[in-house]
Computed example of a mutant assay.
Amino acid sequence: MLVHIEPPISPSTAHAIALYCAGSYVGSLYLSRNARLSFKRESAPNLRDGQQRAKEHDERWRDDPDVIRARFIAAGTSTLSSCGVLLGLIWRPLGWHTHGFGAAIENTLHRLGLTLPSSISEIILPCLVTPVLFLGPIYAQYLAGALPGQRHWSWHWSVRPLIWTWQGWRNILFGPITEEIVFRACTIAVYHAAGASTTKMIFLTPLIFGLAHAHHAWEIFNRYGRTAAAAKRALLTITIQLSYTSLFGFHAAFLFLRTGSLLAPITAHMFCNLMGLPQIDAQIAAFPHRRRAIQFTYISGILGYVYTMRHWTLVNDSFYWPTAGAQRFY
């Protein structure tokens, strides 16, 4: 028999906290002078369509190492702040004198998914779901000889840029970790405390994650010359990015809820940043004699994804996806 338990916070409180988490993360990138971008104000009308203009010496662009370092500090501080808000939310109903501050911290870490499932299979299998979905792109990389150990793969060109550059650390390590803590764990935790349904947490919370990327439009508009063509490019890019990040958010939210751990969402985020958007048309054009094989692996990846999302993700005693009994808030 299901037992009804009144949620400890209201939906409006959950909305406010979720907006704070997202707003502070994005806003932190612009509060610090060193983290802000700067562009020249003049347009560059002589650029060919699709051409990016050259960077001026006194400008600050997103991939500048000093900008990345400053944003590491800003985003890291914001991430800790969001975790602190969740800790305060949990500490209040637990009570300092009743359970102690240590219990509140333990509860917070549990809700943030900063714990691991009990068995090795429950740790590994959810992390393999995303690579299964990318079976088609992985096969295309195999055809191109770009997988580890193949002729076009090398430590210097294939690995070093990912682990030995500021851009690589941002894209593969720091960005996925902080964004999943803020936009997945913190957001879902507060909506769960407000009694939101599983469907809403999977399909509505990722929209915040998608909208948080809209600020990149200003950078694209400036990098491509501040012209009408640049504005169209920025709008198109952000629309595609919003769609992709929202779709990924649905996937990551499901992984988080099913496993109760951030490990699978973080590794999925890292893997997707590494692979980029699937480009089946370009891959078929590059290897027309393998057209059917590429199509088959793409379809197989989708079918395998449907199967593995159901059978490889459910773990025993997941806090957010209990197999029986009432929904748990505290």
Rank of each mutant, 00 (worst) to 15 (best):
I202L: 12
V182S: 12
R92A: 00
W91H: 14
F221K: 01
F254Q: 02
S119N: 09
G210S: 15
A194W: 12
I9T: 04
A18R: 02
L125Q: 04
R233C: 00
T165D: 01
K40F: 11
Q327C: 06
W218M: 04
S82K: 14
A22Y: 04
I299C: 12
A104Y: 02
L143C: 01
N34P: 03
C127A: 14
P176M: 12
R226C: 00
I208D: 10
F174C: 05
P11R: 14
G168N: 02
G249P: 00
F250Y: 14
W169H: 13
W61Y: 12
Y244F: 14
W91K: 07
A293W: 06
T108W: 02
T259K: 12
T187S: 13
I9K: 08
P278Y: 03
F183K: 07
N273H: 09
F254V: 01
S261H: 05
W169M: 03
L94I: 14
L37G: 04
R41H: 12
A293M: 12
I17L: 15
S300P: 09
H215N: 15
A70Y: 01
I68H: 05
Q150D: 09
E59P: 10
P65T: 15
V190T: 15
T267Y: 06
A286F: 09
D317V: 00
L314F: 10
R170C: 01
L2W: 09
M1W: 15
L94D: 08
R71D: 02
F183H: 13
W321A: 01
T297G: 09
A194E: 08
I188P: 00
E42F: 09
K40M: 10
P148L: 01
N222C: 05
I208F: 12
K40N: 14
G23T: 09
A231K: 13
P176G: 10
H99L: 01
I299D: 06
Y25F: 15
T130Y: 12
R92V: 05
G276P: 05
C21Y: 07
F287W: 03
C127Y: 00
H269V: 06
L235F: 15
A253W: 03
G50R: 05
M201A: 07
G325Y: 10
Q283W: 07
H269A: 00
R62P: 04
